[in-house]
Amino acid sequence: MSGKPAIDLKFYLKLFWTTFTLSLFTFGGGFVIVSLMRKKMVDQYGWINDEEMMDFITIAQSSPGPIAVNASLMVGYHLAGIPGALISTLGTILPPMIILTFVSIGYQAVAENTWIKAAFHGMRAVVAAIVLQVTWALFKSLAEKKNILPLVLFAAAFVALFVFKVNIMVVMVAMILLSVVLSIHETKKENMS
């Protein structure tokens, strides 16, 4: 078992500072921050063991919302209950909140500048490339499974979203309901056999 630290003011400050710095210096999305979190909290501090951390990461990935926020919530709750969850969440969301507040002010001030416009002109094409490359990688992992259902669902969702401009929330709710029904059906089948 991992040794849970003593829950005092010093611990709360350390928890806040740890999640704050992890969030501040981590570029490149949820998976990067989660692996750094594991290094710090499992290897360096010994607050939780590796197995628990892996469980938290799995739950964080399969739940709604940003993975980094979900993972720090789980770890904070595990260590120090609801106050721990709130402190680690605050530590995780404060850096982007502070930075983007200033960026938002700055963007409004410089958006009409010729050179800023020129830079965004180039970057917009790059961002489209990054997003479509991510799509391509995700699509390949869908197609890899040699299962026709995900591809049919992909095609149906794409037609609904792109051709018929159906609201994405509507499509998501429909797919969530469908998955729940299929899951219950499958679990029943497993229990019967």
Binding site: S62, R124, V131, V134, P150, M175, S179
Partner: peptide, 25 residues
């Protein structure tokens, strides 16, 4: 298990949605 099934079930939709957003970008 239920969450895992939901995640698997919505993944094609998520990919289609990111694709659609990518095309508009």
């Amino acid at each position: 298990t239920l969450m895992k099934h939901v995640l698997e079930g919505v993944r094609p939709t998520v990919v289609a949605a990111i694709f659609t957003a990518g095309l508009s970008l």
